[in-house]
Design a protein around this nucleic acid. Structure first.
Lengths: 228, 228
DNA sequence: CGAAACAGGATTGTATACGAAAATGTGTGA
DNA sequence: TCACACATTTTCGTATACAATCCTGTTTCG
């Protein structure tokens, strides 16, 4: 899709790489992100790595523990609720704006995006599928031409990928494609009311597909992996 | 009010200091933030200063120009609109939540806050008045018990301070105190609908009190300070 | 045998040194 | 006198060195 045009060796590049790895579930929540290790992987010094990690921690994708290092974040149940609460405030009306300002190019972009989602699901690349289905929401914000809101949604979507990794309960393949298709037809017919409603219910579907009653259903810090 | 309990010498401390200075209009938009200078002021190395500046740039309060240094951001008209658009999405419903979850302590806090605003205005400390009137909105998000949304609003409020510095047209003293008082009575009576409506119109009042037709009405880069 | 103390190793936190880029100041030639 | 080229200076970008902290494995003592 939108393959970063960042020059390698910069903090932004490294941060984007790590963020995508998190988003695609190649780096599960709690993973240690050693500075020396990353520095060697990308052929740079720790200075750049640290800048990248600090940036990611501002987006709540990485937790920085003093004198302990950086770890992929593990959103709590509470944070998970908050993230989707924020998305519920931002995204429906952004979908409406996007619908109102939709262009032929925008429609083509979204269609291609959905196509790529399908391809990823079909190819069994579930990580990439999660990434793409998240980016779909970011693309909508971009079409709405709201850079500020887009940045917020981008962060929330990335955090959602972590939340999904921790709390997803349905083992069924991503059924979201249906919701995204429905949104597409709203965009195609220019029905802004419907776009807003569909986005609202889509987000609601997402939260209800999570198991937010108990604590993280994932390794955690190994303390909770063994029942306290 | 809420006087940071950060240990001096850390990046967070320095960032908070600079952010407050920006918020209180002691550092006008476009100000150069030299690394060596800041390092000397706070008695630390450039390493820490750079971490602080990078953090502030993620909040869009500082613009980092490659090989040129850090400058206090100068939001464009477009960014200004976007910021208030985002606030319009987040804050009214957050005010509603705050109203629904209001506690006696929360009410006391807000009352004290408004009192401090009055005192600052009365003492002619307009910078501090701007800061406090912004923090009022952050406190509401805190009472709503939504840390994620609070972080977003905090950023938006700080950016609003820059927007006010650039585009404020009414020379009259801050008339917002009225709006904040009205919100207070909604909170006191527990009228959530009214709280939401009042916040919505308060934000609308704020934008209409700005002059967002022309380009920055402030120094800019010194090129526009002298009529091109 | 178990617990606490200690030493070794590994990793992060901070400062500093050095190279690179840009802005500024100076001098020369038309 | 003005414009252009060159030298100087300042400031930023990155790497690296060193100190501080934490974790782990061992030892020692009760």
């Amino acid at each position: 899709m939108n393959d970063m045009l960042l020059t390698p060796g910069t903090a932004e590049y490294v941060a984007a790489e790590i963020e995508r790895a998190i988003h695609e579930h190649r780096l599960p929540p709690g993973s240690k992100l050693g500075e020396d290790e990353l520095a060697e992987v990308y052929g740079i010094s720790r200075t750049i790595v640290r800048a990248a990690l600090q940036g990611l921690s501002h987006r709540h994708l990485v937790e920085l523990k003093r004198n302990r290092g950086a770890f992929v974040a593990q959103p709590t149940v509470r944070e998970a609720r908050e993230v989707f609460e924020a998305r519920a405030l931002l995204e429906p009306r952004t979908a409406r704006s996007a619908c109102e300002r939709m262009t032929p190019e925008g429609l083509a972009l979204l269609r291609a995006h959905i196509e790529a989602e399908h391809a990823a699901v079909h190819a069994g690349e579930s990580g990439r599928a999660v990434y793409l289905s998240g980016q779909f929401h970011v693309e909508i914000a971009r079409i709405a031409d709201q850079a500020t809101i887009e940045a917020f949604i981008s962060e929330l979507v990335s955090r959602s990928a972590l939340i999904i990794a921790l709390y997803w309960q349905r083992r069924a393949a991503l059924c979201e494609s249906h919701a995204h298709h429905a949104l597409m037809s709203a965009f195609e017919t220019g029905d802004a009311d419907m776009a807003e409603d569909l986005m609202k219910s889509h987000l609601l579907d997402l939260v209800t597909s999570l198991d937010l009653r108990n604590r993280a259903s994932f390794p955690g810090t190994l303390r909770e992996a063994l029942g306290q």
